[in-house]
Design a protein around this nucleic acid. Structure first.
Lengths: 141, 141
DNA sequence: CTCACTGCAAAGAATTTGCACTGAA
DNA sequence: TTCAGTGCAAATTCTTTGCAGTGAG
């Protein structure tokens, strides 16, 4: 039994076919998926899957911290499986492949500097990097 | 003649009442505004202002770099006047007042670390901080 | 006087809600 | 068996487009 099924069960939710299909699509994806993309991919497993169910499932998975919503520069958003312990996304502008990386001392230092400079108390941060992944760099050069 | 009017003119665009009204609303605002909020505020200057024109004006102002779109944690976005030379927004979770701050060596260091760790080449970054501004901190304590 | 710009209406996305049916526990 | 979960249709919300009229330069 995968960990995410245990998390669902323990929180009092049921493990259903649509939820399995959505999770499998997200696990298989290396890129942040938009709801309609998730639906298309998940339908190979569960034909009748409705877009509404995708939205509801995503809301549930986010609530449980299994999935994160990432922003794109154009304002759209995609959904990405949460890598445990990691918080930030790095997205390839060329192929959309995304990986996550951990925040380290450098982010803490930055936050501390900004707090000192502004007088604000910083509680959350949203950091995403955009660039080119190794294989797209190789393809370009 | 304000600088933004010069920028418009030099780029071959016209300075019109609706554009003035939108800019004034943004200048007066200390918080990121959503399109409908901009419209409501700008209508004190220009009654007939349509939401469509707000969208078109914002697109133009973004193209000229006068305005930035900022993301909120809930996925909505607001528009904020660009502070010259600054790139990142710090938004109060309590009153929504926003200020911008400059990226410094700390961000460069972070990006360099991530590039080394991942092999990606980083070209853009999206950084926003959320917290409490000084006056909201004072009100809470 | 011209043509960029505007407002309206209407189309098109993206997301949410209402409700009767279905299937996981 | 029972109620959480689902799918459909339809409602909302957000944003863009088409087009005839208006006003900035």
């Amino acid at each position: 039994m995968p960990d995410w099924e245990r998390r669902l069960t323990e929180a009092g939710y049921r493990v259903t076919m649509p939820r399995r299909a959505v999770m499998e699509a997200l696990v298989a994806a290396e890129v942040p998926l938009q709801p309609h993309e998730i639906r298309e991919r998940a339908q190979t497993r569960h034909r009748r899957l409705g877009l509404v169910t995708v939205y509801r499932t995503l809301a549930l998975l986010m609530e449980l911290g299994l999935v994160r919503r990432v922003h794109r520069e154009d304002g759209c958003h995609g959904y990405l499986l949460t890598a445990p312990g990691h918080r930030h996304a790095l997205i390839c502008q060329c192929c959309a492949r995304a990986i996550e990386f951990a925040g380290g001392d450098d982010i803490s230092a930055l936050i501390q500097r900004v707090e000192t400079q502004t007088g604000y108390r910083v509680e959350e941060h949203l950091l995403q990097l955009f660039g080119q992944c190794p294989s797209c760099q190789a393809a370009t050069e």
